Computed example of a mutant assay.
Amino acid sequence: MSNTDTPSGTGIDRGALERYLEEQFGPAESFEATEQDGGSSNRTVFVAWGERELVLRCAPEHERVPYLLHDVLGEYGMLSVLTGTAVPVPQPVASCADTSVLGVPFYLMERVDGEILGGEEPARFATPECRQRVGELVIDTLASLHTVEYDPSEVRAVPEGTTAEAVEAHVRNLEDALGTTGRDLDRALEVGEWLREHVPEPPERTLVHGDYKPDNTMMAPSESPQITAVLDWEMAGVGNPRADLGWLLNYWSEAADPDPITPEFEERYGDHELYGTVTEYTREDSTFMAHPSYPSRAELVDRYERRTGIEYRHDRFYRALGLFKLTAICERFYEAYLERPETAKDTYPMMELIPPVLAERATLVVDGETRL
């Protein structure tokens, strides 16, 4: 096997990776590695070492975004903590903090067979019974995470600390990005001020995912719905379970939800060529959940409360907090695109329009227009 080129579609040194794999698992007759699309923070590479199917996770070499978690070793630690619990996760295999190997820290996990619950509804689930079951599985898995017993010494805290500190961190993150992009996102900053004025008392802390949503769950290739793995744990740790639930609810559409791209919005931003692309992009957030056969957001909350004993209070705050956090993150992506367009991910140009759309969505939540 050649050890001088790079795996297909990756910037990872093939020879270095091959040597590492051979040290870890012994020689193999074949070796393939292909970087996967999707995700905006860390990189995912499918690795076939002989007959063994693995997934490599590492931070990007160039387009790292300030404030985002690129701590893949922390992700590896979370997978290790959750292995054997009721939360389905890929089996962690090995981690490497030595940046002389691939240039960045990385880890390997077993590859899980299944399909991401995003984009279009799986045809085999297009029945009222399956749709109901999908909703139950998504919320039950989050409830299982929030009720896992854990050793605090083995799990990091989420970086924002308290809820008030989280608000300040997100506001600062957005303001820093706007200092580079030079954009006017007054709607978003108004939401930030509202959040500052309405910080509630937090519940007892639990393990949290930080980015729990349908397209971070993988469904088994079976006729009946079954979650085989929850993915993308880079923002996980010990934190506020209500914030985790509020984040999920932002990705659970309902038919009555108002469209943030109104005639007034279009007048403000002009005849933008990205409208169609953004609409298509947001469908990847599983907007098929708006079908009436799926549980409503209120039904998800009711089931969550019954299974965890955690009361989901201050809904507007936590959903607005999630959308504001995402607005700040996406503005960071746009900042990275403006500063380093040659290394930016394909989705980054869309960030010209996505933060304003998210700010509108957050405003609709704050104003009570997007109801639970």
Rank of each mutant, 00 (worst) to 15 (best):
S2G: 03
G11Q: 14
I12V: 15
R14E: 13
L21Q: 04
E23S: 14
E32Y: 04
A33P: 01
T34N: 12
S40T: 11
V47M: 10
A59Y: 01
E61K: 06
R64M: 05
V65T: 10
L68W: 00
H70S: 02
V72M: 03
L73E: 00
E75M: 07
V81I: 07
L82Y: 13
G84D: 07
T85D: 01
P88S: 05
Q91K: 08
C96F: 02
S100F: 04
V101D: 02
G103P: 04
V104E: 15
P105G: 09
P105I: 11
F106S: 00
L108P: 03
G114N: 13
G114C: 14
G118C: 05
G119K: 10
E121H: 08
A126P: 02
A126Y: 06
P128H: 08
C130T: 14
Q132M: 11
V134L: 12
L137F: 13
I139P: 06
A143Y: 06
S144C: 06
V148Y: 06
E149S: 15
A157E: 14
V158Y: 00
A166W: 08
V171A: 15
L178F: 12
T181L: 02
R187K: 08
E193R: 12
E193D: 14
W194N: 11
W194C: 06
V199F: 05
P202M: 11
P202Q: 13
P202D: 12
E204D: 15
R205I: 01
V208T: 15
H209I: 05
G210D: 01
K213A: 01
M219W: 04
E223Y: 12
E223Q: 09
S224I: 10
P225I: 07
P225E: 10
Q226L: 15
I227C: 13
T228I: 13
L231I: 13
G239T: 03
D244K: 06
E254F: 06
D257T: 04
P260A: 08
I261E: 00
E264H: 00
D271M: 12
E273H: 09
G276I: 02
T277Y: 02
T282E: 11
E284N: 14
D285P: 01
S286A: 15
M289G: 03
M289N: 05
P292Q: 10
P295S: 12
V301Q: 08
D302Q: 09
Y304M: 02
E311D: 15
R313M: 05
C330K: 05
E331T: 02
F333K: 00
E335L: 10
A336D: 10
Y337P: 11
E339D: 13
P341L: 10
P341A: 11
Y348S: 07
L353T: 04
V357S: 00
L358Y: 05
L358P: 02
A359C: 10
A359I: 08
R361L: 14
R361V: 07
A362S: 02
E369P: 00
E369C: 01
T370C: 08
R371D: 15
R371Y: 01
